[in-house]
Nucleic acid binder design. Sequence first.
DNA 1: ACTATATAGTTTCATTTGAAACTAATTTTC
DNA 2: GAAAATTAGTTTCAAATGAAACTATATAGT
Lengths: 158, 158
Amino acid sequence: MTPASGETASTTLELEGFLPYRLNLLATEVSQTLARVYGKQFGISIPEWRVLATLGQFDVMTARDIGIHSRMHKTTVSRAVAALEKRQLIARRANRSDMREAFLALSEAGQAVYRDIVPMAKSFSESLCLGLSPEERETLDRLIARLSERVSHLGAGD
Amino acid sequence: MTPASGETASTTLELEGFLPYRLNLLATEVSQTLARVYGKQFGISIPEWRVLATLGQFDVMTARDIGIHSRMHKTTVSRAVAALEKRQLIARRANRSDMREAFLALSEAGQAVYRDIVPMAKSFSESLCLGLSPEERETLDRLIARLSERVSHLGAGD
DNA sequence: ACTATATAGTTTCATTTGAAACTAATTTTC
DNA sequence: GAAAATTAGTTTCAAATGAAACTATATAGT
């Protein structure tokens, strides 16, 4: 039977109140809902969107930098870049002074896709936040930042 | 070049301030950090832990209910249950009045593992929240709940 | 200069995942 | 009460993922 409430805290873990669990459910659902939007219309996967979004913001970057910034595994980046390149959404330019890496940037077509997706992404995010007051939104941002900082400390034991 | 700040809002998306992005980074890092804890010591995967945690909380459940509650795909649940059963951490009991499903519960050994992991999970979650005031924690909970509610509405278009 | 080591990125391989097909049991409909 | 539709759970297959090996280039150390 369900543990009697009131003295629950000791041995059982109430998942509904467990931050990692709830955070993960929320983030998964948010990501997937958003991915459905651009996935359907543009045939773009989550890693591809991340690459696109990163290049859209920073214009020129190496694959390595994209990976660091968006915290994607280098193979994930490599494959997403390859797929986007094949569709001519990004262009590669050699770095003459270091031939191991290459400068990546959105092509015109890539910028067009980016310009199409961004408003959708923004409006999605905004409608998500509808019903939060400006103070609450600010608090949310601050709390996420605080938690991100902490978890990276806690996880430093790699 | 990087878009001039000040009129950024229009065309580019600043990922650092984009809620879905930040939420996902945070949740991924939190999950993985926690998973490293119980994964190393108990050889338990994330889905297995979720099954364990769900059964630990609700004692007896069908695979279906576990999936609904923890929002896991039924094949993920099926495989996690199979793995845990093989290790004798959970036990299966037939439902005589519906032979399609089966009642699942933690075995003694499973309860022992659960009792070992729960304090670790709790202390992880708590140290994560260290540095948030009680009001902030409460606000965080409320905001996550609010967003979860909203995203499930927005995503209803399946 | 030449070997050592390190780095960027790709490829290979094993594992994980989810969608779709499948099996077995149950419920509905006529 | 038999055929049709549903449901719980498993299996199969294809796609996504990450770890490790690999290629090509660059940097150190001597």
